[in-house]
């Protein structure tokens, strides 16, 4: 792969995009998981698909639109979905999680209709669902780079606010943290990262890259910073090994990346078990 990497631009695009989302997806994932919002990533990835379908349809039916990158329409839908979820969560105060299935099924419902109108599935769509090492072009790589820089900057700038909001919303509120505004900013970042990650990992598996590395990190970390560090390390390992084996096995990278993440998760669970048992034996 190393030789081919220097030879083929598409491999460079996929690898660099992969490395970037290997950082930002688990980074935001930590906050999503500790706030018990894991399913939001799923809802947003499904509505991203609706955006992609809408873009493919427009490209087919409207003359003059040829070179639209469906990813941008996906981002617009994802961000719109994120804002809708926030609205619905406020509307159903006592059933906040209800917003997620509403957006998820609404998105898929509309998506299916748009896909059919665009004359059904094709290879393009398949690569959006499960990821592809060939789908990423140079411009989307740059877009992902910009999103990555923006997300990292925002997390650093608002680290203490995001931490206090995740740990204790009441405390955040009496600390003068504007929870609603920061939460909206956060969920828009999540929406952008999902749309950005989708090309490599695929829509159906993007939420795994946000949650599985965090699940592994939670087994081992003591502190919040450690959780973030380990999540990124596990996410990055999954992406790199996953992309490499995807290329060699000629299977979609979404599958291999997620399977590496699952293997890491199983390893951390076993490691923690063994260590706890050693600790008990050592103590008694």
């Amino acid at each position: 792969m190393i030789e081919s990497f220097f030879q083929y631009e598409f491999l460079q695009n996929a690898a660099i995009t992969g490395i970037l989302i290997g950082i930002v997806a688990p980074l935001l994932g930590v906050f999503i998981v500790v706030r018990r919002l894991s399913l939001i990533a799923d809802a947003l990835s499904h509505i991203t698909l609706t955006g992609i379908a809408a873009s493919l349809l427009l490209e087919k039916k409207v003359t003059g639109i040829n070179d639209w990158n469906p990813v941008y329409m996906g981002m617009v839908f994802s961000v719109g979905g994120a804002i809708l979820i926030e609205r619905l969560r406020k509307l159903y105060k006592h059933y906040e999680e209800l917003a997620i299935p509403i957006i998820l099924s609404g998105g898929i419902g509309l998506g299916v209709i748009l896909i059919s109108l665009a004359d059904g599935f094709n290879t393009d769509l398949f690569s959006y669902l499960f990821g592809s090492v060939t789908a990423v072009d140079r411009t989307s790589m740059w877009t992902v780079l910009i999103i990555t820089i923006m997300v990292i900057a925002i997390v650093i700038l608002f680290y203490k606010e995001l931490f206090v909001l995740s740990f204790d919303e009441e405390q955040a509120s009496i600390s003068g943290v504007n929870g609603r505004w920061i939460h909206l900013l956060f969920i828009v970042m999540v929406a952008l990262v999902i749309a950005a990650s989708m090309q490599v990992v695929g829509i159906l598996l993007v939420s795994a890259l946000m949650t599985l590395p965090v699940a592994s990190a939670l087994r081992l970390a003591r502190s919040f910073k450690q959780t973030i560090g380990l999540s990124i390390a596990f996410g990055e390992t999954s992406v790199l090994i996953g992309l490499f084996s995807s290329y060699h096995l000629s299977v979609p990278p979404g599958g291999t990346i997620v399977m590496v993440a699952v293997i890491i998760l199983v390893m951390t669970i076993l490691f923690k078990k063994v260590r706890t048992q050693q600790w008990i034996k050592g103590e008694v």
């Binding site: 500790v34 018990r36 203490k160 606010e161 931490f163 206090v164 995740s166 740990f167 204790d168 009441e170 405390q171 955040a172 009496i174 600390s175 003068g176 943290v177 990190a217 939670l218 970390a221 003591r222 502190s223 919040f224 910073k225 450690q226 959780t227």
Partner: peptide
């Protein structure tokens, strides 16, 4: 004004944070 809420007893005890990180959060304001 410092506040120790009733909910402090029922926070998410799986939350990955050290004591120091939690206390530092009190300085946000």
């Amino acid at each position: 004004i410092g506040f120790v809420s009733q909910k402090a007893n029922s926070f998410n005890s799986g939350f990955p944070a050290t004591v120091l990180e939690v206390v530092k959060a009190g300085l946000v304001s």
